[in-house]
């Protein structure tokens, strides 16, 4: 299908975009890479009075590591982050997860912040931000605030972003020495949304694990000093706690089994790849 009518503003500066969003509020939608929004507009699952395109705003296109944090600007694409030379050393989890985000033809346009704002419960970047304990920087014409991942994503396809705010940056903590990171997902085809995705950060006896694709948002758990048997019990408990659901892709029971199996595998991989 084709999108319904809308006005279009190709904003050329941060102020122009923030002012326009402040004026139009809920009538407006921020268009970054458009790899989710354009599809939703075409299918008329979304319709907007005005699209504010932030793709031309150069100051919002950057990746920089500063003070233990990797900050990714609102306009930075998934492909640009994947091509960042320090990625494997500074963010091994993102280096492992990003190739699973869509396809190369969508990563070339899709942005990191856009994926976080779309907040699909199965998608990889919100999962990574959650397990790493990252943050999202929100800005409006009136000011800015920074939210922890757990406070930013509030449910399926929903976040704490207010209508006049733009997620101007995502902040991922730099990988710590002695901590191992791993990611795995099960999909019907490479690049599809995950049926279940698991990310883990393991440091000594401490395990931090996040599961996507089952609950309405990434579920994070932190465990310390568990034996292997305890770990299996903990993963089983988490699988039942999240419940899961039946859909055309998988049954709830299959999802729980994936949480147990991939969970154990990802935690083990993170444990063995500690630097």
């Amino acid at each position: 299908m084709k999108p319904a009518e809308f006005d279009y503003l190709g904003a050329e500066s941060p102020d122009e975009a923030l002012d326009a969003l402040g004026r139009h509020g809920e009538d407006a939608r921020v268009l970054a890479g458009g790899q989710s929004l354009m599809a939703m507009l075409n299918m008329r699952l979304a319709s907007q009075q005005i699209l504010i395109d932030i793709g031309r705003i150069e100051p919002w296109r950057y990746v920089r590591a500063d003070g233990g944090v990797i900050e990714v600007g609102a306009g930075t694409t998934q492909a640009e982050l994947l091509a960042w030379p320090d990625l494997a050393a500074k963010a091994p989890l993102l280096a492992k997860a990003l190739p699973h985000v869509g396809h190369l033809q969508t990563r070339s346009r899709g942005t990191v912040c856009g994926s976080l704002c779309h907040a699909d419960p199965s998608s990889e970047l919100p999962l990574c931000l959650a397990v790493l304990g990252g943050e999202v920087v929100l800005k409006s014409a009136k000011g800015s605030r920074t939210l922890a991942a757990k406070d930013f994503q509030t449910g399926m396809l929903s976040t704490a972003r207010k209508p006049d705010e733009i997620a101007v940056a995502a902040r991922f903590p730099v990988a710590r020495a002695g901590t191992g990171y791993a990611f795995e997902e099960v999909t019907r085809r490479h690049g599809d949304f995950a049926i279940v995705a698991v990310a883990a950060a393991v440091s000594g006896p401490s395990v931090r694990v996040a599961v996507g694709g089952v609950a309405d948002r990434p579920m994070v758990r932190e465990w310390t000093g568990l034996t292997e048997a305890d770990m299996a019990d903990a993963l089983n408990g988490l699988a039942w706690e999240m419940g899961g659901f039946d859909d055309i892709h998988a049954t709830a029971r299959y999802r729980r089994e994936l949480v147990r199996r991939i969970g154990a595998r990802v935690i083990e991989e993170a444990r063995t790849c500690r630097s």
Partner: peptide, 23 residues
């Protein structure tokens, strides 16, 4: 027309992209 099939793939400034997800 929603970015799944890839038939409309073009290159925008050299990068492969979906022409159905671009205005």
């Amino acid at each position: 027309e929603h970015g799944i099939c890839g038939a409309c793939t073009i290159r925008l400034d050299g990068e492969p992209a979906r022409a159905c997800l671009l205005l």
